[in-house]
Design a protein around this nucleic acid. Structure first.
Length: 1042
RNA sequence: GCCUUGGUGGCGGAAUUGGUAGACGCGCUGGAUUCAAAAUCCAGUGUCUUCGGACGUGUGGGUUCGAUUCCCACCCAAGGUACCA
């Protein structure tokens, strides 16, 4: 009887579902084990082969733990709020709830097909109101809490109000906004209600603040960095600028230190810990305040300022200018520095262009230039500004700050290498000690005073703290980095212009999204101040809207809802027209971000149907925390940091017993796919002279595409947009010229100008779905491509082909992802080879943690392994050996126990790829041994069961069992079957193995040495030379040097 | 740019503590079986070679009796970089 995986897999999937084989109980005498996979976002493309990789690993471990006698919780659910469903809704008008439901159905079918041991009775969906009720609940808890730095935990806001009423906020040490004013009890009690609310917002763990976003005016919406390509929107190519918006934020910074400290307690991969550590970015240093000099005064003094805005290096003159006329300092600049010891090396200051002070201190002469620069910076993304270290740019504001000690004026510049969101958005520039400052100073001809003893700074800055000895620095002269830092801090504190400070790179997390498909905030506004809706009225469900786009006035999509106001008396959602700001109030229009729903889902699985609480105390006390969490490392600083933050908050509030929710975490590597790209040429005209101002005219013609070989022929023209026409590239120019019938469309001459224009073009790269290629080749199926009509404009595409008359695409290895159009779907593979084959093959591909390319071809190897395994059990399958038990041979036992040991070790180390090899070796050996012994084949079925559960169940049944294999005890390894009496030693000369000799396993070092040296092959190798040294490592190797 | 990971045959990968490099599988070559094909089975398969052997784990150095493994410098690829999930 042949191995019929279709029948077998369907049979056991049905059996498991009917018998609820994997349902976990919240009560058990067995030890608990909680194994969790990161839940998927149900996209329209369905699961691809990358998804199950981690799920299979978690499933293997879960099944293994069941064999080992644990009560295993292994749940699955859906992270079902998100952008793609909303994009789809915008395009098609279909409600995201409907598409999401359909997608989930598809995912469920695909997951079921793979034979996972999930407890589906615990499924959660973040977009389900019964689930997001509790997401809203946590938001409210955060709103009603503040962070007390004295007790180092979150506390109820009422404890803070109590202190304010008694003594004001002078003694409160809290995580709060920087601009929180000081007040005493009397002042507090006299504040209006609104004022009190405003002040409390500065303390709450979730609060309203102005934060920067990527604003796309043309689309009227905020874009994710992901949606921006080269500074313009991915959809439509519209400009994007940085803009401030009032949004909800989460005070995660209050937990910065605890998030850092907690990393020591958890068994998570070191690289992941590193990225969280860097993300939090703790640095010790000083906060220093610089006074801005009175603008009138510094401007009128020509001795200080040279024509280009550079301070004269003549210190005597400068000294004279700072004669102590008491100055009124209306503005101050606060900077954070890790090098207070270099304070005398400051020769300028740089503000982020978006810094609040820029507009206030810029002199009229510099105004135009500064404003132009600020505007230009708004167009650049933060990442772009950080990554670009080559170009130095900045503008002098015309204003000066005063050095805290020398009282010399320091020019204040703005530069886009300083980010507003990091530190205070201002730096004291010490060019001799920081390379970026150095480059900036060199570029703008700003003096670079040397404050290091015996260091040459004529070529580059000197940043080595260890060997620093300070010079030219008044009271710091001759001190080391450590001493100088201490002294500088003390002096700064004396004059009230600085103090030691620990700075974190971590920023508070923006929690508002201008989207439809997310959790609504349980918030309404009275007199502009946010009010929370009570738990008993939750969930506050998403309203229906006509369209999912922002409103015409630029409000988020919820602004389109007509029934979206809160009646505070009836406690219901009512029509917007009823808003009177007395009993009916407007509701919040933003929704929560993707990570809201995933920040506590692991705890909700413990008691997912509870409507009274997020989970019962009994459930959380039993399950405690996740024992094994498997998911992608790309979540390192998103989900995995925010969820730790919420867990710590839940811990402070006493809701959960552990302040870290996952003991052990493993990152599965990505499965990479090979994306395909086509190249579109956009014809246009450009000035013949000068910088070649280019105007694209692509929209006038059919879209033109050139094969990848043709792209290689092109040569970009230096200093101009476009390409040089050469012998090689002529073919591309001709291709375009042939298609431009009506030259008048180009309007080569502008009436008002005398400049001439010429034809040229630009190249745009488009990623295309890999199913538009012919088979597995790089060649485009042009008919399919035209038919698909991507972006709605490629229907009549024309192609410049290669010599073989093919259009060849450019291929690139990237992570497999729907958004990259390079996914391979598991359904067809399951259909052809079965789930057990797919499970084995995904594991066989390579180490779980490493990323690896997908190639379906190799699956025949594991598929034939399963056939061989099946064949091994033939006597039991066809009944030819009924009732007769063959005694296992020594070889049988050796093979089995070798396999038990290896497989158990492998599972414990999550090395699943090597266990698959081990199974193959085992089956090959047992087949060669013609093994028919039940006492060998029975334990082998259990060993295989976590990996290939369907076939294992079937074989188990054929061996005569009536219960599922799921909880059969894991076989025990016995070392006695593996004892060897001899050892084959590799004999190497100068480290190279030349031949092998067999010796008894217990032979001593000296005896081995003697035997080897006496051997004829040794003499042959040495050719008369006397060995200088002989190394014998018993049980391992012999090495002869000579 | 910065942080992280990785680089071993034609391909995926193995080598668990510094000790036989290439296990296992794919592919390929030859053979058996077959009217034929599929499937299956058997043998071979790192490169070069004067058939003795020599070389070989991204590149260049170093430590060591011995390095895929440890150290230094560099090159290349992928992931993340704060609103994709």
């Amino acid at each position: 009887m042949n191995y019929n995986f279709r029948e077998i897999e369907a049979k056991w999937q049905k059996y498991w579902a009917e018998h609820e084989t994997f349902k976990a109980s919240n009560h058990s005498d067995k030890p608990k084990f909680y194994a969790l996979s990161m839940f998927p976002y149900p996209s329209g493309a369905g699961l691809h082969v990358g998804h199950p990789l981690g799920y299979i690993a978690t499933d293997i471990y879960s099944r293994y733990k069941r064999h080992k006698g644990f009560n295993v919780l292994h749940p699955m659910g859906y992270d079902s709020f998100g952008l793609p469903a909303e994009q789809y809704a915008i395009q098609t008008g279909q409600h995201p709830a409907i598409t999401t439901e359909n997608n989930i159905k598809r995912y469920r079918e695909q997951l079921d097909q793979l034979g996972f041991s999930f407890d589906w009775s615990r499924e959660v969906r973040t977009s389900n109101p019964q689930y997001y009720k509790w997401t809203q609940w946590i938001f409210i808890q955060l709103f009603h809490s503040w962070y007390n730095k004295k007790s180092d935990k979150a506390e109820d806001i009422s404890t803070l109000i109590f202190v304010f009423e008694k003594e004001g906020n002078a003694n409160v040490i809290a995580a709060c906004d920087d601009d929180t004013p000081m007040f005493n009890a009397g002042e507090w009690n006299n504040f209006s209600d609104k004022k009190k609310q405003e002040i409390l917002l500065k303390y709450r763990l979730t609060y309203l603040a102005d934060t920067e976003v990527n604003w796309c005016p043309a689309l009227g919406t905020v874009l994710a960095n992901d949606e921006i390509v080269n500074g313009v929107s991915e959809r439509g190519g519209h400009p994007v600028i940085r803009k401030k918006m009032t949004q909800w934020s989460m005070r995660i910074t209050a937990y910065a230190q605890r998030l850092l400290d907690g990393l020591d307690k958890i068994d998570w991969p070191q690289p992941l810990k590193d990225s969280q550590t860097n993300w939090i970015g703790r640095s010790e240093g000083a906060s220093v305040t610089f006074n801005v000099l009175d603008a009138e005064r510094s401007r009128s003094d020509n001795n200080v300022i040279s024509g280009e805005g550079v301070i004269s290096s003549d210190s005597e003159k400068s000294q004279k200018n700072v004669i102590s006329i008491p100055l009124n300092h209306p503005y101050q600049i606060e900077v954070f520095t890790t090098r207070p010891d270099t304070i005398f090396g400051v020769s300028f200051m740089t503000l982020a262009p978006e810094h609040d002070l820029v507009a206030k201190i810029t002199t009229p002469e510099q105004k135009a230039e500064v404003e132009a620069y600020v505007e230009a910076t708004a167009k650049r993304s933060e990442r772009d500004r950080m990554a670009d270290v080559k170009t130095v740019s900045g503008v002098f504001t015309g204003a000066y700050a005063e050095h805290p000690f020398t009282k010399e004026p320091i020019p204040i510049w703005i530069g886009d290498y300083v980010l507003a969101s990091y530190g205070t958005g201002a730096v004291m520039a010490v060019p001799c000690g920081d390379q970026r400052d150095y480059d900036f100073a060199k570029h703008y001809n700003i003096p670079i005073p040397n404050i290091f003893e015996g260091v040459d700074i004529s070529e580059e800055a000197f940043a080595d703290k260890a060997t620093t000895i300070i010079a030219n620095s008044d009271f710091l002269n001759g001190l080391s980095y450590k001493e100088a830092t201490k002294k500088a801090l003390a002096e700064l504190e004396k004059i009230g212009q600085g103090k030691g400070k620990v700075n974190y790179r971590l920023r508070d997390a923006v929690f508002s999204r201008q989207r439809y498909w997310g959790e609504p905030f349980p918030v309404y506004y009275v007199d502009g101040m946010p009010q929370m809706i009570d738990l008993e009225h939750l969930p506050l469900e998403l309203p229906e809207v006509e369209k999912y786009l922002p409103t015409e006035t630029g409000e988020p999509p919820l602004g389109n809802a007509t029934v979206w106001a809160w009646d505070a008396e009836q406690c219901t959602v009512v029509n917007n027209q009823l808003i009177d700001h007395k009993t009916v109030f407007p509701l919040e229009l933003n929704t929560m971000p993707g990570w809201a729903g995933s920040s506590q889902y692991f705890n909700r699985y413990m008691d997912p149907r509870n409507n009274e609480a997020i989970f019962s105390k009994e459930a959380i006390d039993y399950w405690q925390d996740v024992d094994l969490y498997i998911g992608g490392s790309e979540h390192a600083t998103g989900h995995l940091l925010y969820s730790r933050f919420w867990q710590k908050f839940m811990f402070d509030m006493g809701y959960v017993p552990m302040d870290e929710y996952a003991k052990k975490l493993i990152n599965q590597g990505m499965i990479t796919g090979t994306s395909a790209f086509v190249f579109q040429v956009i014809p246009g005209i450009r000035r013949k002279t000068g910088n070649g101002n280019f105007v694209g005219k692509g929209s006038l013609f059919a879209p033109l595409f050139i094969s990848v070989e043709k792209v290689d022929l092109l040569e970009e023209e230096e200093g101009k947009l476009g390409y040089v026409e050469t012998e090689k590239s002529k073919v591309v120019f001709d291709f375009i010229r042939e298609r431009i019938e009506d030259l008048s469309k180009f309007n080569f001459y502008d009436e008002s100008e005398t400049v001439e224009y010429e034809l040229n073009f630009q190249i745009i790269r488009h990623r295309i779905p890999i199913d538009m290629l012919k088979g597995t080749s790089d060649i485009l199926d042009k008919t399919k491509f035209r038919k698909s009509n991507m972006y709605g404009v490629f229907g009549d595409a024309e192609f410049l082909l290669n010599e073989e008359d093919e259009y060849v695409t450019h291929r690139e290895v990237e992570k497999m992802s729907k958004s990259k159009y390079n996914v391979v779907n598991p359904d067809a593979i399951c259909e052809e080879y079965g789930a057990d084959s797919l499970r084995l093959y995904e594991m066989f591909l390579g180490p779980l943690e490493q990323s690896k390319p997908w190639n379906t071809a190799g699956i025949t190897g594991v598929s034939s392994f399963l056939k061989k395994l099946w064949k091994l059990y033939t006597p039991f399958i066809d009944g030819s050996l009924s009732g007769v038990e063959a005694e296992p041979t020594a070889d049988n036992l050796k093979t089995l126990h070798k396999t038990i040991k290896k497989v158990e070790d492998d599972i414990e180390h999550f090395s699943f790829n090597t266990s698959v090899s081990t199974f193959m070796i085992c089956v090959n050996e047992l087949t060669a041994q013609k093994c028919t012994s039940k006492s060998i084949l029975e334990p082998l079925a259990i060993l295989v069961s976590p990996y290939a559960p369907h076939i294992a169940e079937e074989l188990w049944e054929r061996l005569g069992h009536t219960e599922s294999i799921a909880e059969a005890p894991f076989p025990t390894f016995e070392a006695k079957y593996l004892v060897e009496s001899t050892k084959e030693y590799p004999i190497s000369f100068n480290g190279k193995t030349r031949f092998k000799l067999e010796f008894p396993a217990d032979m001593g070092k000296e005896e081995i040495e003697a035997a080897v040296l006496a051997h004829e092959k040794t003499l042959e190798q040495l050719q008369g030379r006397a060995p200088k040294k002989v190394i014998v490592v018993p049980g391992k190797i012999v090495n002869i040097v000579g």
